[in-house]
Amino acid sequence: MNTFIRQQRETTCQDGLTELRHYGMIIDLTKCLGCQTCTVACKLFHGLGPDIVRVRVVEQELGQYPDVERLYIPLRCMHCDEPECVKACPTGATKKRPDGIVTIDRDECMGCRYCSVVCPYHARSFIPVEKRYFPESDNHWEDVRYRQHQVGTMDKCDFCHERIDRATDRMLEPGEDPEATPICVISCIGKALYFGDLNDPESTVSRLLEERESFRLKEDLGTGPSIYYLPRRKRK
Protein backbone atom coordinates (compact mmCIF):
# COMPACT_ATOMS: atom_id res chain seq x y z
CA MET A 1 0.00 0.00 0.00
CA ASN A 2 1.04 3.51 -0.81
CA THR A 3 2.99 4.76 2.20
CA PHE A 4 1.34 8.13 2.27
CA ILE A 5 -2.06 6.57 2.34
CA ARG A 6 -0.89 4.06 4.88
CA GLN A 7 0.29 6.86 7.15
CA GLN A 8 -2.90 8.78 6.70
CA ARG A 9 -4.72 5.59 7.30
CA GLU A 10 -3.04 5.00 10.58
CA THR A 11 -3.97 8.39 11.86
CA THR A 12 -7.49 8.10 10.59
CA CYS A 13 -7.86 4.71 12.18
CA GLN A 14 -6.76 6.06 15.46
CA ASP A 15 -9.06 8.97 15.69
CA GLY A 16 -11.84 7.07 14.02
CA LEU A 17 -12.11 9.37 11.01
CA THR A 18 -12.91 7.78 7.77
CA GLU A 19 -12.84 10.64 5.28
CA LEU A 20 -10.00 9.23 3.27
CA ARG A 21 -11.71 6.03 2.46
CA HIS A 22 -14.36 5.06 0.05
CA TYR A 23 -15.52 1.53 0.59
CA GLY A 24 -16.76 -0.39 -2.35
CA MET A 25 -17.42 -3.86 -3.57
CA ILE A 26 -16.63 -5.74 -6.72
CA ILE A 27 -18.76 -8.61 -7.91
CA ASP A 28 -17.33 -10.97 -10.47
CA LEU A 29 -20.23 -12.30 -12.53
CA THR A 30 -17.96 -14.94 -14.01
CA LYS A 31 -17.56 -16.50 -10.62
CA CYS A 32 -20.96 -16.09 -9.00
CA LEU A 33 -23.00 -19.26 -9.23
CA GLY A 34 -26.17 -18.08 -7.58
CA CYS A 35 -25.71 -20.31 -4.56
CA GLN A 36 -27.20 -17.80 -2.10
CA THR A 37 -24.54 -18.44 0.50
CA CYS A 38 -24.00 -14.69 0.78
CA THR A 39 -27.71 -14.15 1.31
CA VAL A 40 -28.01 -16.64 4.10
CA ALA A 41 -24.71 -15.78 5.75
CA CYS A 42 -25.79 -12.15 5.93
CA LYS A 43 -29.19 -13.09 7.30
CA LEU A 44 -27.73 -15.25 10.00
CA PHE A 45 -25.02 -12.82 11.00
CA HIS A 46 -27.37 -9.87 11.21
CA GLY A 47 -30.23 -11.85 12.69
CA LEU A 48 -32.70 -10.98 9.95
CA GLY A 49 -36.11 -12.55 10.13
CA PRO A 50 -38.27 -13.98 7.38
CA ASP A 51 -38.32 -12.07 4.10
CA ILE A 52 -35.78 -9.52 5.23
CA VAL A 53 -32.79 -9.83 2.96
CA ARG A 54 -29.93 -7.47 2.49
CA VAL A 55 -28.43 -9.23 -0.46
CA ARG A 56 -30.41 -11.13 -3.02
CA VAL A 57 -28.91 -13.03 -5.87
CA VAL A 58 -31.39 -12.83 -8.68
CA GLU A 59 -31.45 -14.71 -11.90
CA GLN A 60 -31.86 -13.24 -15.30
CA GLU A 61 -32.75 -15.50 -18.18
CA LEU A 62 -31.80 -14.11 -21.58
CA GLY A 63 -32.64 -15.35 -25.04
CA GLN A 64 -34.92 -18.02 -26.37
CA TYR A 65 -34.62 -21.77 -26.45
CA PRO A 66 -32.16 -23.16 -27.40
CA ASP A 67 -30.01 -20.02 -27.24
CA VAL A 68 -30.58 -19.25 -23.64
CA GLU A 69 -28.34 -17.86 -20.97
CA ARG A 70 -28.87 -17.26 -17.34
CA LEU A 71 -27.03 -14.75 -15.22
CA TYR A 72 -26.80 -14.57 -11.47
CA ILE A 73 -26.74 -11.04 -10.22
CA PRO A 74 -26.10 -10.37 -6.54
CA LEU A 75 -27.98 -7.22 -5.56
CA ARG A 76 -27.52 -5.27 -2.41
CA CYS A 77 -27.41 -1.61 -1.48
CA MET A 78 -25.03 0.09 -3.86
CA HIS A 79 -23.88 2.64 -1.31
CA CYS A 80 -24.42 5.29 -3.92
CA ASP A 81 -22.35 8.42 -4.13
CA GLU A 82 -25.57 10.31 -4.77
CA PRO A 83 -27.99 8.22 -2.78
CA GLU A 84 -31.58 8.77 -3.72
CA CYS A 85 -32.61 7.31 -0.39
CA VAL A 86 -30.71 9.94 1.57
CA LYS A 87 -32.32 12.67 -0.52
CA ALA A 88 -35.74 11.24 0.15
CA CYS A 89 -35.52 10.35 3.79
CA PRO A 90 -37.56 12.98 5.63
CA THR A 91 -36.28 12.04 9.05
CA GLY A 92 -32.62 11.86 8.20
CA ALA A 93 -32.49 8.30 9.49
CA THR A 94 -30.71 7.29 6.33
CA LYS A 95 -27.27 8.80 6.26
CA LYS A 96 -24.19 8.62 4.20
CA ARG A 97 -20.93 8.29 6.06
CA PRO A 98 -17.78 9.99 4.87
CA ASP A 99 -16.35 6.64 3.87
CA GLY A 100 -19.24 6.10 1.51
CA ILE A 101 -21.29 3.68 3.58
CA VAL A 102 -24.99 4.46 3.62
CA THR A 103 -26.61 3.50 6.89
CA ILE A 104 -30.02 3.61 8.51
CA ASP A 105 -30.46 4.62 12.11
CA ARG A 106 -33.21 2.34 13.33
CA ASP A 107 -34.13 4.67 16.15
CA GLU A 108 -34.74 7.57 13.83
CA CYS A 109 -36.67 5.86 11.06
CA MET A 110 -40.40 6.48 10.99
CA GLY A 111 -41.14 3.82 8.42
CA CYS A 112 -42.49 6.02 5.63
CA ARG A 113 -40.86 3.90 2.90
CA TYR A 114 -40.08 6.84 0.67
CA CYS A 115 -36.48 5.68 0.58
CA SER A 116 -37.60 2.31 -0.59
CA VAL A 117 -39.61 3.65 -3.50
CA VAL A 118 -36.86 5.95 -4.69
CA CYS A 119 -34.07 3.38 -4.49
CA PRO A 120 -33.42 2.20 -8.03
CA TYR A 121 -31.91 -1.05 -6.80
CA HIS A 122 -34.67 -2.38 -4.54
CA ALA A 123 -32.07 -2.55 -1.86
CA ARG A 124 -34.33 -1.90 1.08
CA SER A 125 -36.71 -4.06 3.03
CA PHE A 126 -39.39 -2.75 5.29
CA ILE A 127 -40.02 -4.69 8.48
CA PRO A 128 -43.80 -4.53 8.54
CA VAL A 129 -44.68 -6.76 11.44
CA GLU A 130 -43.00 -8.96 13.97
CA LYS A 131 -42.30 -12.10 11.96
CA ARG A 132 -40.97 -15.49 12.84
CA TYR A 133 -39.93 -18.52 10.89
CA PHE A 134 -41.77 -20.52 13.46
CA PRO A 135 -44.72 -18.32 14.31
CA GLU A 136 -46.76 -20.78 16.32
CA SER A 137 -43.99 -21.96 18.58
CA ASP A 138 -41.60 -20.15 20.81
CA ASN A 139 -38.06 -20.16 19.58
CA HIS A 140 -35.43 -18.93 21.93
CA TRP A 141 -33.01 -18.14 19.14
CA GLU A 142 -35.46 -15.97 17.27
CA ASP A 143 -36.45 -14.23 20.49
CA VAL A 144 -32.89 -13.24 21.22
CA ARG A 145 -31.60 -12.59 17.75
CA TYR A 146 -34.49 -10.53 16.46
CA ARG A 147 -34.51 -8.25 19.45
CA GLN A 148 -32.68 -5.61 17.47
CA HIS A 149 -35.40 -5.48 14.84
CA GLN A 150 -37.69 -2.55 15.09
CA VAL A 151 -41.01 -3.28 13.55
CA GLY A 152 -42.07 -0.50 11.25
CA THR A 153 -38.60 0.53 10.19
CA MET A 154 -36.36 -0.01 7.22
CA ASP A 155 -33.48 -2.40 6.81
CA LYS A 156 -30.78 -2.73 4.23
CA CYS A 157 -27.17 -3.67 3.71
CA ASP A 158 -24.81 -1.52 5.71
CA PHE A 159 -21.59 -3.07 4.42
CA CYS A 160 -21.34 -4.70 7.85
CA HIS A 161 -19.96 -1.38 9.06
CA GLU A 162 -19.76 -2.62 12.62
CA ARG A 163 -17.25 -5.25 11.55
CA ILE A 164 -15.32 -2.66 9.64
CA ASP A 165 -15.32 -0.09 12.38
CA ARG A 166 -14.41 -2.54 15.08
CA ALA A 167 -11.65 -3.96 12.98
CA THR A 168 -10.14 -0.73 11.74
CA ASP A 169 -9.82 0.24 15.36
CA ARG A 170 -7.56 -2.77 15.64
CA MET A 171 -5.58 -1.73 12.57
CA LEU A 172 -7.00 -4.45 10.37
CA GLU A 173 -7.54 -3.71 6.71
CA PRO A 174 -11.09 -4.10 5.41
CA GLY A 175 -11.13 -6.40 2.45
CA GLU A 176 -7.87 -8.03 3.41
CA ASP A 177 -8.47 -9.25 6.93
CA PRO A 178 -11.55 -11.44 7.18
CA GLU A 179 -12.43 -9.98 10.58
CA ALA A 180 -12.71 -6.55 8.99
CA THR A 181 -14.56 -7.65 5.88
CA PRO A 182 -18.30 -7.98 5.31
CA ILE A 183 -19.62 -11.39 6.21
CA CYS A 184 -21.05 -12.05 2.75
CA VAL A 185 -17.67 -11.44 1.16
CA ILE A 186 -15.82 -13.85 3.37
CA SER A 187 -18.57 -16.45 3.03
CA CYS A 188 -18.91 -16.45 -0.75
CA ILE A 189 -18.02 -19.90 -2.02
CA GLY A 190 -17.45 -18.69 -5.55
CA LYS A 191 -15.01 -16.08 -4.22
CA ALA A 192 -16.93 -13.73 -6.46
CA LEU A 193 -17.00 -10.81 -4.03
CA TYR A 194 -14.25 -8.35 -3.24
CA PHE A 195 -14.42 -5.54 -0.75
CA GLY A 196 -12.08 -2.70 -0.02
CA ASP A 197 -11.10 0.89 -0.26
CA LEU A 198 -11.67 2.34 -3.70
CA ASN A 199 -9.57 5.35 -2.77
CA ASP A 200 -6.53 3.22 -2.14
CA PRO A 201 -5.01 2.61 -5.56
CA GLU A 202 -3.33 -0.51 -4.32
CA SER A 203 -6.30 -2.23 -2.79
CA THR A 204 -7.54 -5.38 -4.46
CA VAL A 205 -10.70 -3.63 -5.54
CA SER A 206 -8.83 -0.77 -7.16
CA ARG A 207 -6.49 -3.14 -8.91
CA LEU A 208 -9.36 -5.20 -10.25
CA LEU A 209 -11.02 -2.08 -11.60
CA GLU A 210 -7.77 -1.15 -13.19
CA GLU A 211 -7.21 -4.53 -14.78
CA ARG A 212 -10.64 -5.62 -15.78
CA GLU A 213 -13.57 -4.18 -17.58
CA SER A 214 -16.36 -3.29 -15.20
CA PHE A 215 -19.75 -1.65 -15.09
CA ARG A 216 -22.25 -0.45 -12.59
CA LEU A 217 -25.97 -0.94 -12.61
CA LYS A 218 -28.22 1.82 -13.92
CA GLU A 219 -25.27 4.09 -14.27
CA ASP A 220 -27.32 6.52 -16.34
CA LEU A 221 -29.29 7.54 -13.27
CA GLY A 222 -26.23 9.22 -11.88
CA THR A 223 -26.49 7.49 -8.53
CA GLY A 224 -22.81 6.56 -8.57
CA PRO A 225 -22.96 3.10 -7.04
CA SER A 226 -19.98 1.88 -5.03
CA ILE A 227 -20.58 -1.61 -6.32
CA TYR A 228 -18.92 -2.61 -9.55
CA TYR A 229 -19.59 -5.71 -11.58
CA LEU A 230 -17.04 -7.55 -13.63
CA PRO A 231 -18.84 -8.87 -16.69
CA ARG A 232 -19.27 -12.53 -17.36
CA ARG A 233 -16.36 -14.01 -19.26
CA LYS A 234 -17.12 -16.57 -21.93
CA ARG A 235 -14.84 -18.77 -23.93
CA LYS A 236 -16.13 -19.56 -27.35
Binding site: C35, F134, S187
Partner: peptide, 21 residues
Amino acid sequence: PGEGRVCVKAYGLVQKMYNPK
Protein backbone atom coordinates in the same frame (compact mmCIF):
# COMPACT_ATOMS: atom_id res chain seq x y z
CA PRO B 1 -10.21 -27.41 -0.74
CA GLY B 2 -13.07 -25.15 0.32
CA GLU B 3 -10.51 -22.80 1.86
CA GLY B 4 -12.36 -22.87 5.14
CA ARG B 5 -15.68 -21.69 3.76
CA VAL B 6 -18.99 -23.50 4.02
CA CYS B 7 -21.91 -23.53 1.65
CA VAL B 8 -25.42 -22.17 2.04
CA LYS B 9 -26.64 -25.40 3.66
CA ALA B 10 -24.26 -25.06 6.60
CA TYR B 11 -25.81 -21.72 7.51
CA GLY B 12 -29.08 -23.57 8.00
CA LEU B 13 -27.63 -25.58 10.86
CA VAL B 14 -28.41 -22.93 13.43
CA GLN B 15 -32.06 -22.96 12.49
CA LYS B 16 -31.92 -26.75 12.42
CA MET B 17 -30.71 -26.79 16.01
CA TYR B 18 -33.30 -24.38 17.37
CA ASN B 19 -36.13 -25.68 15.23
CA PRO B 20 -39.11 -25.95 17.59
CA LYS B 21 -40.62 -28.55 15.25
